[in-house]
Protein backbone atom coordinates (compact mmCIF):
# COMPACT_ATOMS: atom_id res chain seq x y z
CA UNK A 1 0.00 0.00 0.00
CA UNK A 2 3.05 2.28 0.08
CA UNK A 3 3.63 5.03 -2.44
CA UNK A 4 -0.01 5.55 -3.21
CA UNK A 5 0.11 9.06 -4.59
CA UNK A 6 -3.44 9.90 -3.77
CA UNK A 7 -4.95 12.48 -1.51
CA UNK A 8 -8.57 11.54 -1.07
CA UNK A 9 -10.62 8.35 -1.07
CA UNK A 10 -14.41 8.29 -1.26
CA UNK A 11 -16.17 5.20 -0.03
CA UNK A 12 -19.82 4.48 -0.81
CA UNK A 13 -21.05 1.28 0.84
CA UNK A 14 -24.21 0.53 2.78
CA UNK A 15 -22.50 -1.98 5.09
CA UNK A 16 -21.35 -0.14 8.23
CA UNK A 17 -18.50 -2.52 9.04
CA UNK A 18 -17.16 -2.58 5.51
CA UNK A 19 -17.27 1.21 5.36
CA UNK A 20 -15.69 1.77 8.76
CA UNK A 21 -12.95 -0.79 8.22
CA UNK A 22 -12.07 0.55 4.78
CA UNK A 23 -11.83 4.01 6.28
CA UNK A 24 -9.57 2.66 9.04
CA UNK A 25 -7.36 0.99 6.46
CA UNK A 26 -6.79 4.08 4.33
CA UNK A 27 -6.46 6.41 7.30
CA UNK A 28 -3.76 4.13 8.65
CA UNK A 29 -1.90 4.98 5.47
CA UNK A 30 -2.44 8.68 5.98
CA UNK A 31 -5.08 9.33 3.38
CA UNK A 32 -8.11 11.53 3.80
CA UNK A 33 -11.28 9.45 3.64
CA UNK A 34 -14.88 10.49 3.14
CA UNK A 35 -17.44 7.72 3.46
CA UNK A 36 -21.13 7.56 2.65
CA UNK A 37 -23.78 4.93 3.43
CA UNK A 38 -25.64 5.50 0.16
CA UNK A 39 -25.27 6.91 -3.31
CA UNK A 40 -27.58 9.76 -2.41
CA UNK A 41 -25.51 10.74 0.61
CA UNK A 42 -22.53 10.92 -1.68
CA UNK A 43 -24.29 13.09 -4.25
CA UNK A 44 -25.70 15.36 -1.54
CA UNK A 45 -22.30 16.11 -0.03
CA UNK A 46 -21.14 19.50 -1.27
CA UNK A 47 -17.62 18.82 -0.15
CA UNK A 48 -17.21 16.25 -2.91
CA UNK A 49 -16.88 19.25 -5.22
CA UNK A 50 -13.70 20.29 -3.44
CA UNK A 51 -11.90 17.48 -5.10
CA UNK A 52 -11.08 19.47 -8.26
CA UNK A 53 -7.37 19.33 -8.70
CA UNK A 54 -6.95 16.66 -6.05
CA UNK A 55 -6.01 13.15 -6.97
CA UNK A 56 -8.84 11.08 -5.65
CA UNK A 57 -10.60 7.77 -6.13
CA UNK A 58 -14.05 6.37 -5.47
CA UNK A 59 -14.56 2.91 -3.96
CA UNK A 60 -18.10 1.91 -4.77
CA UNK A 61 -20.25 -0.96 -3.56
CA UNK A 62 -22.67 -2.27 -6.17
CA UNK A 63 -25.55 -3.75 -4.18
CA UNK A 64 -27.16 -1.02 -2.16
CA UNK A 65 -30.75 -0.17 -1.39
CA UNK A 66 -31.98 3.00 -3.07
CA UNK A 67 -29.71 4.11 -5.87
CA UNK A 68 -27.44 1.20 -6.78
CA UNK A 69 -23.75 1.50 -7.50
CA UNK A 70 -24.39 1.02 -11.21
CA UNK A 71 -26.95 3.82 -11.20
CA UNK A 72 -24.55 6.15 -9.41
CA UNK A 73 -21.94 5.40 -12.07
CA UNK A 74 -24.40 6.20 -14.82
CA UNK A 75 -25.42 9.38 -13.05
CA UNK A 76 -21.78 10.51 -12.75
CA UNK A 77 -21.23 9.74 -16.41
CA UNK A 78 -24.27 11.75 -17.46
CA UNK A 79 -23.18 14.69 -15.29
CA UNK A 80 -19.75 14.45 -16.94
CA UNK A 81 -18.04 14.05 -13.59
CA UNK A 82 -14.89 12.06 -14.14
CA UNK A 83 -13.87 10.32 -10.99
CA UNK A 84 -11.71 7.20 -11.21
CA UNK A 85 -13.82 4.47 -9.68
CA UNK A 86 -13.17 0.97 -8.37
CA UNK A 87 -16.29 -1.11 -7.96
CA UNK A 88 -16.36 -3.70 -5.17
CA UNK A 89 -18.89 -6.48 -5.19
CA UNK A 90 -19.60 -9.90 -3.77
CA UNK A 91 -19.81 -11.48 -7.18
CA UNK A 92 -18.15 -10.41 -10.39
CA UNK A 93 -19.04 -12.39 -13.50
CA UNK A 94 -18.03 -11.37 -17.00
CA UNK A 95 -21.42 -9.93 -17.78
CA UNK A 96 -21.52 -7.72 -14.71
CA UNK A 97 -17.95 -6.63 -15.35
CA UNK A 98 -18.90 -5.50 -18.82
CA UNK A 99 -21.97 -3.63 -17.63
CA UNK A 100 -20.07 -1.86 -14.88
CA UNK A 101 -17.17 -0.95 -17.15
CA UNK A 102 -19.54 0.38 -19.76
CA UNK A 103 -21.09 2.57 -17.10
CA UNK A 104 -17.67 4.12 -16.50
CA UNK A 105 -15.92 2.14 -13.77
CA UNK A 106 -12.20 1.60 -14.11
CA UNK A 107 -11.96 -1.70 -12.25
CA UNK A 108 -14.09 -4.33 -10.55
CA UNK A 109 -12.91 -6.30 -7.53
CA UNK A 110 -14.51 -9.17 -5.66
CA UNK A 111 -15.00 -8.99 -1.93
CA UNK A 112 -13.22 -9.86 0.24
CA UNK A 113 -10.38 -7.91 -1.36
CA UNK A 114 -6.93 -8.11 0.12
CA UNK A 115 -5.33 -4.77 0.70
CA UNK A 116 -2.36 -5.37 -1.62
CA UNK A 117 -4.68 -6.06 -4.55
CA UNK A 118 -6.74 -3.04 -3.67
CA UNK A 119 -3.69 -0.76 -3.52
CA UNK A 120 -2.36 -2.16 -6.78
CA UNK A 121 -5.72 -1.65 -8.46
CA UNK A 122 -6.06 1.92 -7.19
CA UNK A 123 -2.57 2.72 -8.43
CA UNK A 124 -3.40 1.30 -11.87
CA UNK A 125 -6.71 3.11 -12.01
CA UNK A 126 -5.08 6.46 -11.19
CA UNK A 127 -2.44 5.90 -13.82
CA UNK A 128 -5.05 5.04 -16.45
CA UNK A 129 -7.03 8.07 -15.42
CA UNK A 130 -4.03 10.38 -15.71
CA UNK A 131 -3.24 8.96 -19.13
CA UNK A 132 -6.67 9.79 -20.54
Amino acid sequence: MKSLSIEMIYIVDDDDAVRDSTRALFEAYGLTVRDYPSANHFLDDDRTRERDGLSCCLLLDLHMPGMSGAELLEHLKESEISLPTVVLTGRADAQLRERVMRAGARALLEKPVNSEDLAQTIRQVLMDHAAD
Binding site: V18, D20, S21, T22, K111, P112
Partner: peptide, 8 residues
Protein backbone atom coordinates in the same frame (compact mmCIF):
# COMPACT_ATOMS: atom_id res chain seq x y z
CA UNK B 1 -19.13 -8.31 3.90
CA UNK B 2 -17.86 -9.20 7.39
CA UNK B 3 -14.86 -10.97 5.88
CA UNK B 4 -13.97 -7.82 3.98
CA UNK B 5 -14.27 -5.81 7.18
CA UNK B 6 -12.10 -8.25 9.14
CA UNK B 7 -9.42 -8.10 6.48
CA UNK B 8 -9.47 -4.32 6.41
Amino acid sequence: QPLTAIMN
